[in-house]
């Protein structure tokens, strides 16, 4: 029950659905977009989950419907739609630094995030998009706090490695194909 105190919520019964939408639409949409990386899917997900929220509120569950509930509902809605991302070997990749990340297009960062497994993408989305603490993330995902700490650490390492791969691939694409030139001259 402790995690329920982590989010500010209005007193039971006092929040209208319109106020609820105003307050929570943007974070819910960003989270949905991060899950799906497509505005059409993000629209569909948010509309569906806010529809569930409206129904639950109409049925008297007003106090239980808060931001945490929304994010958890979005996560459930998206659960069946994960793809199989390409795995990387952690030992063989460098991590990107903050200065290099700053030069990357936000779309590249999102695409990189989207290439990761759902469980890691979820944690990173909640940490960076929603700026939730590890305890709040544990509440949304229904995981022990220790598991969130470990998964977030692993996810951040993987994200930095993937971003570095993207950065170096982009750089090498601009350079002349050294290996190919050597092959031609020796033949």
């Amino acid at each position: 029950m402790e995690h329920l105190k982590l989010f500010k919520s209005a007193p039971r019964g006092s929040t209208s659905f319109a106020d609820f939408v105003e307050e929570n639409f943007a974070p819910a949409y960003r989270f949905a977009f991060c899950l799906s990386l497509a505005h059409e899917s993000a629209n569909h997900l948010t509309e569906s989950v806010f529809g569930q929220a409206r129904e639950a509120k109409a049925n008297g569950a007003n106090g239980a419907i808060d931001k945490r509930w929304l994010l958890a509902a979005l996560r459930r809605e998206w659960n069946g739609s994960d793809e199989s991302p390409v795995a990387i070997c952690p030992e063989t990749h460098q991590s990107i630094g903050a200065a290099d990340v700053a030069t990357l297009n936000p779309d590249v960062v999102l695409e990189t995030l989207h290439g990761m497994r759902l469980e890691r993408r979820l944690i990173l989305s909640l940490f960076y998009f929603e700026r939730l603490s590890y305890l709040e993330i544990a509440g949304v995902l229904g995981l022990p706090a220790e598991t969130v700490l470990a998964r977030l650490a692993d996810a951040k390492i993987e994200l930095r490695q993937r971003l570095e791969m993207r950065r170096t691939q982009k750089s090498s694409a601009l350079e002349p194909p050294v290996g190919a030139a050597k092959g031609r001259s020796s033949g």
Partner: peptide, 28 residues
């Protein structure tokens, strides 16, 4: 220190995600 700088840059990148408002308008 490097980790905190990385987090700050990442949060800034994510803040730029545009929010489409058609669904919000429909809900309201």
């Amino acid at each position: 220190q490097a980790e905190q700088e990385f987090d700050a840059v990442m949060a800034e990148k994510f803040r730029n995600v545009p929010v489409e408002t058609a669904v919000k308008k429909r809900l309201l």
